[in-house]
């Protein structure tokens, strides 16, 4: 398999708690990978490790052939890994437009030189195009703090896209959305595939991923318990037991 992201036996421990235990999988070029598992399975920890938020305790992460494991967070962003957050983390003091503008790679890489080469008009056009894509163009001048839940999640995606990423990590993007919003978001995400090398989509809700994800990886108690085509994986007894069973309470 021609992989863009390789996760090799990655473990993460906090004090005495093992949040991830030797997880390995790969994400292929052009793929949309769904990462599922019950609450506390380690999905968000994995996103945090893959995006450089937490250093892995053991194992290796390779992205586009580059060893990422011990690099600082900002190198992950610069290599083309972008992410959204389960608990939305927009810059609430900024406007919606600024939340996108702030992420443009040329300024992010050398913030102090950005003084010399601001192309304001062109930048605003680029940012507006991204906002339009996430159906937020008419909100550009509002405060980011004023956006309702669903729009705030879409703005996070727009901000992530502004970094011009190859890989996009979406951490429970549909959480808290109603049915209509969820359906629209599915279409938005499907529409992003053409521009991105790969997408990893973390979801608690399996139905959201059916028909959207190419493959699924299932985590439980910090371990990978299944991997493969969605229909196959969701039929595996271990997955049904660990995940679907638990979900029904």
């Amino acid at each position: 398999m021609n992989a863009t992201l390789k996760i090799d036996a990655v473990s993460k421990r906090f004090g005495g708690i093992t949040a991830l235990d030797g997880v390995s999988f790969e994400v292929a070029h052009g793929e949309l990978l769904g990462l599922i598992g019950p609450n506390g399975a380690g999905k968000s920890v994995l996103v945090n490790v893959v995006s450089g938020f937490y250093p892995a305790t053991a194992g290796a992460i390779t992205f586009d052939g580059r060893a990422m494991t011990h690099l600082p967070t900002h190198q992950f962003g610069r290599s083309g890994i972008a992410r959204t957050f389960q608990n939305i983390r927009l810059f609430r003091r900024m406007s919606v437009l600024e939340n996108v503008l702030v992420a443009f790679p040329e300024h992010v890489r050398s913030p102090f030189l950005s003084l010399l080469r601001s192309r304001r008009g062109a930048e605003i056009d680029r940012a507006m195009a991204l906002l339009a894509r996430m159906r937020l163009a008419d909100k550009a001048d509002l405060s980011a703090a004023s956006l309702p839940y669903g729009e705030a999640r879409r703005l996070e995606i727009a901000r992530a896209l502004a970094t011009n990423p190859k890989l996009l990590l979406l951490d429970e993007p549909a959480a808290g959305m109603n049915d209509r919003e969820t359906e629209e978001l599915r279409e938005d995400i499907a529409g992003l595939r053409a521009d991105l090398d790969a997408i990893v989509l973390i979801e608690h809700n399996v139905e959201f991923l059916r028909g959207l994800a190419d493959r699924l990886v299932v985590l439980d108690y910090g371990r990978k318990i299944a991997e493969g085509l969605p229909d196959d994986v969701l039929r595996e007894p271990r997955v049904v037991e660990a995940y679907l069973g638990a979900d029904d309470e």
């Binding site: 004090g15 945090n48 938020f53 937490y54 250093p55």
Partner: peptide, 10 residues
């Protein structure tokens, strides 16, 4: 103190 700053804050 035993926690490193990077572990505590996400």
């Amino acid at each position: 103190g035993n926690a490193t700053a990077r572990d505590v804050r996400a």
